[in-house]
Computed example of a mutant assay.
Amino acid sequence: MDYSSEPPASQDAAPHARGGELRRRMVLVTVLLAAVALVLDQLTKRVVETTMEVGQSIDVFAPLLRWYYIKNSGAAFSMGEGFTWIFTIIQAAVLIYVAVFLVRKIRVWPWALALGGLMGGVAGNLTDRLFREPSFGNGHVVDFIALPNFAIFNVADMFIVCSMIGICLLLFTGRELDGSKSGAVKPNPKLNGNDGQETP
């Protein structure tokens, strides 16, 4: 007979509440990081547009870094120019998939940061494609960061690349969205003890 003064349901309530609060914090951090990345990307592009002419180059830390203002109709790092609308659809699909299906599954901070950065970077370039010239869905992305012997890119590209590196490392180490290791046997709450018998 169980003489506990607190029913089992009440005993389990606190851990569940803490878990729910942690999940909400992770989702909030993911969304905030995405918003910061989007704002930084759009602000820097706005500064470039208002202070430079297309094709203009300004030395920052020569010869390592310079601003070189171009408009890119392709993907990240000026790849695939001429297929703007395809990249618009792909970026919109990626953003929706991450926001709707992945963010709610996050249980560990590394995934929260990686997906937040990815969402913000994708949203930054998608904003250009949707609302910049020449037309809706075919807008050209503003690129301006130039390194020696490297493609010209922007702040959104930086967030995307850094986030993808983080995601690749998480996948390589087998860390899943809920923090578990891929391939590990997860406990079955239906089993009672170690005898393998299901709880009636």
Score class of each variant (00 low, 15 high):
residue 168 C to Q: 09
residue 29 V to T: 11
residue 168 C to K: 00
residue 62 A to R: 13
residue 37 A to W: 03
residue 189 P to W: 12
residue 24 R to G: 06
residue 81 E to V: 07
residue 96 I to A: 13
residue 185 V to K: 15
residue 60 V to Q: 03
residue 131 F to L: 14
residue 101 F to Q: 04
residue 123 A to S: 12
residue 97 Y to H: 01
residue 143 D to F: 05
residue 98 V to G: 02
residue 121 G to E: 04
residue 56 Q to L: 06
residue 25 R to Q: 11
residue 189 P to A: 13
residue 19 G to N: 13
residue 133 E to G: 14
residue 111 W to E: 03
residue 160 I to W: 00
residue 54 V to M: 07
residue 57 S to T: 15
residue 46 R to E: 12
residue 10 S to C: 02
residue 2 D to T: 05
residue 22 L to D: 08
residue 52 M to I: 11
residue 68 Y to K: 13
residue 81 E to T: 15
residue 36 V to L: 13
residue 20 G to W: 00
residue 87 F to G: 03
residue 99 A to Q: 05
residue 60 V to I: 15
residue 95 L to S: 09
residue 98 V to F: 02
residue 155 V to N: 06
residue 131 F to V: 11
residue 99 A to S: 14
residue 36 V to I: 15
residue 92 A to E: 04
residue 187 P to Y: 04
residue 39 V to T: 10
residue 117 G to E: 09
residue 91 Q to A: 11
residue 33 L to P: 01
residue 29 V to H: 09
residue 195 D to T: 12
residue 129 R to Y: 07
residue 198 E to Q: 11
residue 149 N to M: 08
residue 84 T to W: 03
residue 86 I to M: 12
residue 16 H to C: 03
residue 151 A to H: 11
residue 54 V to C: 08
residue 104 R to V: 10
residue 58 I to L: 15
residue 166 G to D: 02
residue 186 K to A: 12
residue 8 P to S: 10
residue 54 V to Q: 15
residue 138 N to F: 11
residue 89 I to T: 08
residue 102 L to Y: 05
residue 78 S to I: 10
residue 101 F to G: 00
residue 189 P to E: 10
